[in-house]
Deep mutational scan, measured.
Amino acid sequence: MPSETPQAEVGPTGCPHRSGPHSAKGSLEKGSPEDKEAKEPLWIRPDAPSRCTWQLGRPASESPHHHTAPAKSPKILPDILKKIGDTPMVRINKIGKKFGLKCELLAKCEFFNAGGSVKDRISLRMIEDAERDGTLKPGDTIIEPTSGNTGIGLALAAAVRGYRCIIVMPEKMSSEKVDVLRALGAEIVRTPTNARFDSPESHVGVAWRLKNEIPNSHILDQYRNASNPLAHYDTTADEILQQCDGKLDMLVASVGTGGTITGIARKLKEKCPGCRIIGVDPEGSILAEPEELNQTEQTTYEVEGIGYDFIPTVLDRTVVDKWFKSNDEEAFTFARMLIAQEGLLCGGSAGSTVAVAVKAAQELQEGQRCVVILPDSVRNYMTKFLSDRWMLQKGFLKEEDLTEKKPWWWHLRVQELGLSAPLTVLPTITCGHTIEILREKGFDQAPVVDEAGVILGMVTLGNMLSSLLAGKVQPSDQVGKVIYKQFKQIRLTDTLGRLSHILEMDHFALVV
């Protein structure tokens, strides 16, 4: 994948999101292997301009796509893939009243899908469409860049269908997702969380590099694949309309690839034109409109599966009536509230959605109805927002919020430890010299600072030695090549209790 991002070429006709291997024109390309080798690009942008032909009021008969309808489940399912879809609609009884809503608040519980998330729908649909058009064949390999849930859905379907599955996901995604993927037989590649989507090191860039190296491999490409919004247009939206008897006044959905909100909203605009569509985008993402909503100094966020630093091709923002931004604290607070007060075992993005819903639905009156999409299960986040310690460490809970008995030293300040200034190293000294210094002084790690004293990161003896043994660096290389740029900081005025929580999850903390 090139470091400079080429513009994806656009073909003359058809839909841009065809499933299957992508040609340089962004659509299915038939021909000899030699032709494909000559024409197939190194990668295709996940934010390529959409060429979708959908228009409100256009006859369904003019759609270029294969459409399906929700099917009634048999008493005995032939395999677990038949437990994807037909998820329950559940009334939220307490939270709406707590925040003064007059309307009825309903939750579409997508964590009841077989793999635990709304992404099971698009995973199965992308595979079925690729099999139907002859792209996927027995023994082929599926590769997908994902925040985890699409990966789980694909790995689940691949396990049943017999495909090899490789999932490329950023490091910030939970260990629970990784464990589930491994249990399903998927191979996992992790990428830096802070890598831009168009960087060769991003999950998108690495996935395309693997595709170019592995024979008979395919990126189904949830960011561009029409099967993504079509899955929701054909099934999720129809289920909502049936469950609500066609009567709903507002739908609120958090947005990642945009397939969920695009597919549902398009069908609702056709069948229930008075329904307002509300999009939820986390602070630090750029999906919301108008652009002024996205202006923030924050560039990272903890909530998973929603928000991006690019506009995915499948996201149709014209069908969203209003956007709201959400933050991590309210997302996790509301997710825990949904679990504790409503018994809905949902993930953090569901918290984002409901946090926005109780604001947006203030305009609705008694007798009206708001539906929220709860995308995934708490299963993926047992060591994250479900953990009091994690919430404390991230600053989303305060010590006084917890009532468990603490040891005698818990409320003492870090400054009472009488710490001395640490050994520091410059980023320009060599790895070999740094190892000598650390061994001589008896230290395992040291902060790396520039000549102005600005902290650049941390270097550890173990990481340097393993990097040297693996051949990633040489003793003569500058130590700046092996620094940890993500590390926890703590102030002298913070409590030892807070430091204790940090050290339970990290090997060190830097006192500043």
Rank of each mutant, 00 (worst) to 15 (best):
T193I: 09
E34P: 02
V90N: 02
W208S: 02
H17L: 13
P49V: 09
K172L: 02
M89N: 06
E4L: 09
Y163K: 05
G134M: 15
E62L: 10
D35K: 02
T141N: 11
P78H: 15
W54M: 08
P41R: 02
F99P: 02
S147N: 02
I152S: 10
T235C: 10
W43M: 10
S147L: 02
E144T: 02
C165R: 06
A8T: 15
E34C: 04
Q55S: 12
R58V: 02
K172C: 02
I127C: 02
A24S: 09
H22W: 06
K97A: 08
P138W: 11
D79Q: 08
E213H: 05
G31I: 04
L210D: 04
A207V: 02
A69Y: 14
R121Q: 02
C275I: 14
P2E: 15
R58G: 06
N212P: 04
H22C: 12
D140S: 09
G258V: 02
E29W: 13
R161W: 07
P41G: 09
T68S: 10
R266C: 05
A24C: 10
F111W: 07
D179Y: 11
E104S: 10
E131L: 05
P21N: 13
K269C: 11
P145V: 04
P49C: 10
P12G: 07
S174Y: 02
F99A: 14
H22D: 02
R164C: 11
S63A: 10
R58M: 09
L156S: 06
K75C: 15
K269Y: 10
S3W: 02
K98F: 04
F99L: 07
H66I: 15
I44E: 15
T236S: 02
S32K: 05
G85I: 02
Q7Y: 15
R266I: 10
L251W: 02
A130L: 05
E201S: 13
I219N: 10
H22R: 14
G259H: 04
D245G: 13
K94F: 02
S217G: 09
K177A: 02
K75F: 06
N149I: 09
E201R: 13
P6N: 09
G96Q: 02
P273A: 05
Y233G: 05
E239F: 02
I261N: 02
H67R: 13
R45F: 05
P74V: 14
E128Y: 13
K269P: 02
S3L: 13
Q55R: 10
S32H: 02
L220R: 05
P192F: 02
A69S: 02
K267L: 10
K108L: 05
G246V: 09
T68L: 11
G11M: 02
S61P: 14
G20T: 09
G274V: 02
N149R: 06
R132C: 13
I143S: 02
G256V: 02
L77Y: 08
S217A: 06
I76Q: 04
S254M: 05
S23E: 15
L251P: 02
A265Y: 02
A237M: 07
I166S: 07
L106H: 15
R209Y: 09
A155W: 05
E213K: 11
C15F: 15
G246D: 13
N212E: 09
P64V: 02
P192L: 02
G162Y: 09
N225G: 02
S73L: 10
L241P: 02
Y223P: 08
T260A: 07
T150P: 06
L106C: 15
K177G: 02
I152N: 04
P138A: 06
H22F: 14
P2I: 12
E62S: 14
